[in-house]
Design a protein around this nucleic acid. Sequence first.
DNA 1: AATAAGGTTTAGGTATACCTAAATATTATT
DNA 2: AATAATATTTAGGTATACCTAAACCTTATT
Lengths: 219, 219
Amino acid sequence: MSTHVEDYIKNIYKLQGEREKVTTSSIADALSVSAASVTDMIKKLSDRSLIKYMPYQGVELTHSGRRMALQTLRRHRLWEMFLVEFLNYTWDEVHDEAEKLEHIMSTDLEERIDKALGYPKHDPHGHPIPTRNGEIIEDDHPSLADLGINDSGVVVRVNDISQSLLQHMASIGIHMQSQIKVLDVVQFDGSMRVLIDDNNVFVSRQVARNIFVDIGGKK
Amino acid sequence: MSTHVEDYIKNIYKLQGEREKVTTSSIADALSVSAASVTDMIKKLSDRSLIKYMPYQGVELTHSGRRMALQTLRRHRLWEMFLVEFLNYTWDEVHDEAEKLEHIMSTDLEERIDKALGYPKHDPHGHPIPTRNGEIIEDDHPSLADLGINDSGVVVRVNDISQSLLQHMASIGIHMQSQIKVLDVVQFDGSMRVLIDDNNVFVSRQVARNIFVDIGGKK
DNA sequence: AATAAGGTTTAGGTATACCTAAATATTATT
DNA sequence: AATAATATTTAGGTATACCTAAACCTTATT
Ligand SMILES: [Mn+2]
Ligand SMILES: [Mn+2]
Ligand SMILES: [Mn+2]
Ligand SMILES: [Mn+2]
């Protein structure tokens, strides 16, 4: 319903991936509000049966909470894709706009955008777009940091945790479907020299951990 | 700032066109809220210097209020145009979406959409789109109801007062730039038989009053 | 088992935007 | 000029979503 409810639910969904029970403080962190505000809100979400809540024990999405989370995620990712495909946004520019637009999307608009984009399966960062029915296929690819010398593959996903990370990745030539091959790994700090579409670049371990590669795809 | 403030200001701007001073009850009507709520809000708008307000004497936009109104109108009309051009919406389907989207548009997004559309001068109903700098050119065309037998012209604007009116106009073949010629006017009720792009159709006076025609354009 | 530290909730408050009912001001009618 | 009708404002209240400070639980450490 409201933008705030949707953002809470979406963030609880994301946090749930990491641990089963989601704590008050982790939600407060994610949304940059006080823990007291979160307690207020999770009571309301619980009243609406979007989460299961036991005081002091953390929070868990219900079935209908999960549905709302996936719908919001779907809309977010469709908007991101739309901004990139139709308005020439780059992948580091889309998040904030999509964060607002995701709450303003009738089912009709959602379907028209989906259609105009040709029913994309992934957003500009390679994240899967949940289906209309709330199905999502989380692919499980190794990060670049997991590869060794001479391993190679295709970039299929990056983490969109920060704008500056996304900008940096773009600046060294990393895009969706970039060919990537590990040339050398520095023992000391895990940093790498890699070939990206035939360009020789240096990647810190911190960055490498946020790039995910399909190693079955190409050799 | 907030969606509510923007909607109040935009509606005051529209009402101002009709009379100088805008009354509490006309705003209440336009926004479907109680008169008491309007009194609440106009005090706040006055505190923010968006309107000039004298209790019991009605309301008037200040310079910065007018600027906000025109910016909101610009964004509304750009979104309407965008929905029509990029997502195959028809002119009767765009208003409600645009009413929400107009509040979610950074200056950057506004300019990208403007550019993607080729800097349009009018929205899908023929209403002028204010410029980035808050200039607006209100064209002054006669309505179809003002024309007599054998007068002709080109449809350049329609009123978007209701979805069913827009649907009806589309169903009888009226679009922007349609050629229109009056064949016959019924004395009794002012209804007309007209030629629209070579189609012979009947138009009630009520409908004719909401269609605006450029008679200088073509003969 | 007691205490200290950390996380969570409660208490009390703010801001926005709405409501109904009652009071009051303006305008129209006699 | 007084009265009646209508419009507007005030008074008192609701719902959402925040906040800080204080109280309270849970968990870890001794
Ligand atoms: Mn959001
Ligand atoms: Mn994304
Ligand atoms: Mn609006
Ligand atoms: Mn319009």
